[in-house]
Design a protein around this nucleic acid. Structure first.
Lengths: 115, 115, 115, 115
DNA sequence: GTGGTCTAGACCACC
DNA sequence: GTGGTCTAGACCACA
């Protein structure tokens, strides 16, 4: 996997999980690949993968069965949506509006740029 | 000046300059405060201020007259707009659209959130 | 390492890297010593070493793997040769020819001086 | 006058004098323009011009008649040639030969590049 | 006065 | 372990 340079890799892995869960590729209760598998898959240091798992566990999006693996928690989908929405409203939107002001871009232009 | 914690101070100074130039507080050809003055004004170490100046010089937004000081270069305003626009289009917009998809937010809702 | 007085140390370190790459002591893809190691080796402050690394990174001669170290980039050797050649042709040669004119020195004399 | 960025302006003025004397535009005993005239002519701070004059005086290339102006000294032409030759042999040639080695450029190629 | 470089040393996030 | 940032403070050449 390719990683952007301005974000920590482990955070990008977390977001990777977010996407999978949001898109229901991984659904509530399902087992996710092991730390090692993720590390190999994404060509990443196992420590880095581990760190992502920890973060996801703290967010109650994954839980661990010792000796078995990591699983998507019950309300993971809802939770992820919550987190992303919160971040979107509180962080990204203000930045977006500021940029639109400074660059003099209207909502209509935004719509155009979508294409 | 107050600095956010998740971005290097010197980059925030660079953006500070961006704003000033975009808002035409500092116009093309004008001399900007000296490194030391900026350091005192923003309450940072001169080295940190210097770093911002170097970055701005590399971006062709400031230029230096030896022994005199730094000046806003001719096309600074245009340049800044270019840089910000490029970043907006190439980095922020894709992320915005992805978020809108994942969170199922329409342009109309976006407009509402503006208020 | 000994440094000349009339050039910034960090630039001399950059040229040191140039030499190593030109002589293929360090080849494409290879990891170079860490910032700290270089600092100890050349007996300079880590900051000074860092500065050289940054310059080399901007020139696309080194690239960074986060948490791992700096690596010689793919086309480093070619790149260095390009840079040096450009400088030679555009800066040093004109100066050389001017000097030869003013001092009335011919190519044959130049060859003699080589010995 | 245009100045190169990597050399102090006052040194470039000194070299400017060297050229004039070598080319016999200014000959031994002749009066040269005043500090102020030079400053205006070259669009330079008078202090900077002054510094060049001091350097030239120390090198015995100019001498001063108080209240009258600066004059080219008797053996200026010879002196300049000496200085330039010394610098050429001791500083520039070694650098030239090193570059030729590293870039793998022969004397024949050098001759070609002259054109 | 101006910028530029450097040391010493600290702290941090990340891999 | 890695690089990156920052402060504090000094010293210097140059305009």
């Amino acid at each position: 996997m390719e990683f952007s340079e301005n974000k920590p890799i482990y955070k990008q892995i977390v977001e990777h999980f977010f996407s999978r869960i949001l898109s229901k590729t991984w659904t509530d209760g399902e087992r996710v690949p092991s730390v090692r598998e993720i590390a190999v898959l994404l060509e990443v240091n196992p420590n880095t993968a581990m760190r992502a798992f920890h973060e996801l566990q703290e967010l109650d999006i994954l839980y661990n069965k010792r000796g078995v693996g990591y699983f998507v928690s019950e309300k993971a989908h809802k939770k992820v949506k919550e987190i992303k929405r919160k971040e979107f409203i509180e962080v990204k939107l203000p930045s977006l509006f500021k940029d639109m002001d400074q660059l003099d871009i209207s909502f209509d232009e935004l719509k155009e740029l979508r294409k």
